[in-house]
Design a protein around this nucleic acid. Sequence first.
DNA 1: TCCGTGACGGTTGAC
DNA 2: AGGTCAACCGTCACG
Length: 250
Amino acid sequence: MEPAFGEVNQLGGVFVNGRPLPNAIRLRIVELAQLGIRPCDISRQLRVSHGCVSKILARYNETGSILPGAIGGSKPRVTTPTVVKHIRTYKQRDPGIFAWEIRDRLLADGVCDKFNLPSVSSISRILRNKIGSLAPQGAYDAGKAAPHAPPQPALPYNHLYSYPASKVPTPPGMPALPGHMAMHRIWPSSHSVTDILGIRSITEQQSKSCCACVSRAGEEGQEELQGARARASQARRTADVLEKVKRDPA
DNA sequence: TCCGTGACGGTTGAC
DNA sequence: AGGTCAACCGTCACG
């Protein structure tokens, strides 16, 4: 069962072991740092360990994102991007192809050897989860950008520890920056949490501009179009996350 | 006193 | 369905 209350650290702050700090606190840490407050003072003020403050600020400086990384999961052992790509190709060339036929072709084409050849059920899963969503409309978002995140994710933990967009993978076209929560280092002039959290307007603009990208991208090939769609979707998700934090800063 | 770093115990989710 | 494993988390202690 999920703990209703966290533990208390040396500074008297409450935390839940293994779980990220709430977005509002992460945001506050970055905000205070932007104001020139020393990390040690941020640590004391927010009752968060200085190691944590250090980590969050380092991550922010490196990626521009305040969000924690994706927790859990494991590296694909057989369903590597190369394998998925080949399966997608086979399926596109022959939509009626069977999973066992794909399996044979992966082996015959040297994509896999007998040790890392996916099972028929694995191939079926790939077809269902990754290839099956190749439908033109919203294919990227539904099948790849958020393979297991519902459009309006239920709070996975409790309101204090929700971070709904945390599992959104970085789509192609946004390689270095986990842009799902990137702040772009643009900060409102006001210093209150409310105003800091009011950066929705920024992300809305980002979303709109990305939508414009989508409309322009039609001539630039399917890859570009998908990337632009993904960015627009990312920006909208960011706005949603921030709105949620804004409504419930705790 | 401040801060970077790594060990630690914990959670999570794809496989 | 349930176990495994590797990713992540924040705290703490050390230098």
